[in-house]
């Protein structure tokens, strides 16, 4: 499954790649991509992770960069 989130407060490309790495590291996430210019995070995850993905993404992003806020798709 693939889901797209909007990231607010993503100010630099370096932060974008940090956030990307953090989301990729979540269990059940097959691929993650942050587009700095559009401020969008695209996550591809296994069906098993469907229940927890929203919270997992939010906390991973918050940990990677506290000033970035995840908005729904």
């Amino acid at each position: 499954m693939t889901k797209t989130y909007k990231l607010e407060g993503l100010d630099c490309p370096v932060c974008a790649s940090k956030v990307e790495r953090a989301v990729k590291a979540i269990d059940g996430v097959a691929a993650a991509k942050v587009n700095f210019l559009t401020g969008k995070l695209t996550v591809e995850y296994s069906d098993d992770a469907a229940g927890i993905i929203q919270d997992a993404v939010k906390s991973a992003v918050k940990k990677a960069n506290p000033s970035v806020v995840v908005k729904g798709s």
Partner: peptide
């Protein structure tokens, strides 16, 4: 600088959007 940069990036994104 960071504040201005984040404002500028935000504005750019918005105008492109």
């Amino acid at each position: 600088g960071e504040l201005c940069q984040s404002w500028a990036v935000d504005r750019s994104r918005r105008s492109i959007a």
